[in-house]
């Protein structure tokens, strides 16, 4: 083979190899850090990736917020109208976190079925609902959902 062509071929192969490695690494790291969103119903029906960090969203059930003494730990229940999930969170709740409002908890589900949250998000201003929750909140509003 002509030496210039040979050199070009080597460069192309090297670039391909590097690109493949990089793409593989990106896909792997992306997979490790992509947090899936689920509704409480999906969790109840076991339709989620066990053991990984995930996000669960719904409406905060009325009278479900319980505080612990001494620490910041707080417990509340999220619902999508069909199922419930208990969330335990040790930290500062966002400003607009409230009963009968939308919230998303990120964390890991324990064997007991509780979500141990590392982060809780609520709407960040009056006219905004977290995008994942628009459907759930519209559904709850349309059924005029109240505590059963």
């Amino acid at each position: 083979m002509h030496p210039i062509r040979k050199q070009r071929l080597q460069i192309i192969l090297l670039v391909l190899l590097f690109a493949t490695l990089a793409a593989g690494l990106i896909i792997y790291v992306l997979g490790q850090n992509a947090n899936f969103f689920y509704t409480p119903s999906q969790i109840k029906n076991d339709e989620y990736r066990k053991g990984s960090t995930l996000r669960v969203g719904g409406m905060v059930v009325e009278d479900s917020i319980k505080r612990f003494d001494e620490t910041l730990a707080v417990e509340f229940t999220l619902t999508d109208g069909n199922a419930f999930i208990a969330v335990v969170f040790d930290g500062i709740l966002p400003d607009l976190f409230a009963e009968n409002e939308a919230a998303i908890a990120t964390g890991v589900i324990k064997d007991s079925g509780e979500l141990i949250a590392s982060q809780v998000l609520a709407k960040h201003d009056e006219n905004y609902t977290p995008p994942e929750l628009t459907e759930t909140m519209d559904y709850l509003k349309s059924t005029n959902y109240k505590n059963k």
Binding site: L30, Q32, A34, N35, F36
Partner: peptide, 10 residues
């Protein structure tokens, strides 16, 4: 394929 968010660790 599901609703996901990509976290800062990525």
């Amino acid at each position: 394929l599901g609703k996901i968010s990509v976290g800062p660790p990525y």
